[in-house]
Amino acid sequence: MQPVGAAAPLRVDIAEKTFRSAQGVSVTALRNLSFEVRQGEFVCLLGPSGCGKTTTLRILLGLDRQFSGSFQLPEGSSNRIAAVFQEPTLLPWRTVEENVRLALPKDLRAKNIDALFDTLGLAGMRSLYPAELSLGLARRAALARAFAIEPAVLFLDEPFVSLDGRTAGQLRHLLLDVWSAKPTTALMVTHNLTEALTLADRIIVLAPRPSHVLGVFDIGLPRQHRSPEATNDLLRSFHQKFPGVT
């Protein structure tokens, strides 16, 4: 993970990642997984459950160093990275606002985050504790935390699972609102094709374990033109290109 030059894309080249269970059985989760994300691009990593998507993110986040291969993170105005986990992972003993501010680097602790809170509809929730929030609101707070630090790259690990369809849809639009205001290089893991077609510039399709790139689906259509009908067309052409993928 040696960042080279400014505005370098996110480059991933993982040769192999193997898990060894306590009984000595080894399972290869990833093999020859390589892809790139361009500066300011929103990419979805799509694959069936258990194909190693989360494992890939954990490697990129630096939480798992037991792998062979390399990756390179982009260098923007900051070299910070942000993550939205599958669960909101807010500190229950700190208020929503404290949770967001704690993630900020020391020199930005006092920065104005009113606009971000307003966009995400959290303005009235700042002084609440996470236990007082619904799952949807907690997820918004997790998004606020990720965007507040103005990261060079944003990783999202199925951030809208276990929400009802309406709330998930609402949150996807909020995510796009915040993201469009300041497009950040983003990599999102999902197994939901419709979600990927709504959010992404490109979809990287992964094969089941040991995971590698099956192909890339380029969504040429700008997001504001992705009406339900247009999304259906996209779905059809996706299935033509990747028959057998959900």
Binding site: A82, A83, F85, E87, T89, L91, L102
Partner: peptide, 11 residues
């Protein structure tokens, strides 16, 4: 999970 969050956000 909290330690991992703190690691990602460089506490």
């Amino acid at each position: 999970r909290y330690a991992e969050m703190a690691a990602v956000y460089r506490f």
